[in-house]
Simulated assay, not measured.
Amino acid sequence: MKENSIITGFHAHVYYDSDTREVAAKIREGLGAKFEVVLGRWHDQPVGPHPKSMYQVAFAPHEFPQVVPWLMLNREGLDILVHPETGDDVTDHTAHALWLGKKLELNIKFLQGIS
């Protein structure tokens, strides 16, 4: 059994498109105002393993019980990936992942270093 202590942090990836960017901005504003999070850059094109536009929100393990329920109630129909940071990117984005909304198909080969 793995211990929770291997989780050094969490990432939430908020996915959007041109029609929902304003909704994503509203969610981002709420996250920044209410919680101790680090808001990543806007990526208006797919980047890394992510199949569509998104921004990342990083937060510490102690913030999980506040951030994730807030996202559950305030995601406004957007799809969000929440995953731990354990040092194993592939497993964190797959077996350890939590999806709010629709589960999107990630490019896991990118995480494996396969092009």
Rank of each mutant, 00 (worst) to 15 (best):
V37P: 02
T8A: 05
G87D: 08
A12H: 03
S115E: 15
D88I: 10
R21A: 12
K2Q: 10
K52Y: 00
G77Y: 09
H93V: 11
L106K: 00
L31E: 00
E85K: 12
Y15V: 07
D89E: 13
K109F: 10
Q56L: 08
W70T: 02
G40A: 14
G101T: 09
I114D: 08
W99Y: 03
E29D: 13
S53N: 07
D79C: 12
H50A: 13
Q112L: 15
A25I: 11
L71F: 06
M72P: 06
E3P: 00
A12I: 06
L98V: 14
P46E: 05
G77M: 13
A58M: 09
G113T: 13
F64K: 03
I6P: 05
F10Q: 00
L106A: 03
E63W: 08
D79E: 12
P65E: 01
E36P: 01
I27L: 11
E85R: 08
A60F: 02
S115L: 15
V67Y: 05
I27T: 01
D44V: 02
E3Y: 12
P49D: 05
S5K: 09
G9V: 03
T8M: 05
S53D: 09
K34S: 13
I80N: 02
H11A: 11
K109Q: 15
V14T: 08
P49M: 09
Q66T: 08
G113W: 11
S53L: 07
K103R: 15
L39F: 07
I108V: 15
I7G: 04
H11F: 14
E3S: 14
L98W: 12
M72V: 12
A60S: 10
T86P: 01
R75P: 01
N4M: 10
Y55D: 00
D89L: 13
I6D: 08
Q56H: 07
P46H: 04
E3M: 09
F10N: 02
V47A: 15
V38C: 09
H43Y: 12
A25G: 12
S115V: 12
G9C: 03
H96W: 05
F64P: 00
V57M: 04
L39I: 15
V82N: 04
I7D: 07
S18D: 14
L39T: 11
S5P: 00
W70G: 02
V67R: 04
G30D: 06
R28I: 03
M1C: 07
D88N: 14
L78K: 00
V68R: 02
G9I: 02
L78S: 00
I27V: 13
M1N: 10
F64D: 00
A60N: 04
L39V: 13
L78F: 02
P84W: 10
K109D: 15
N74Q: 08
R75Y: 05
H62V: 07
K102H: 15
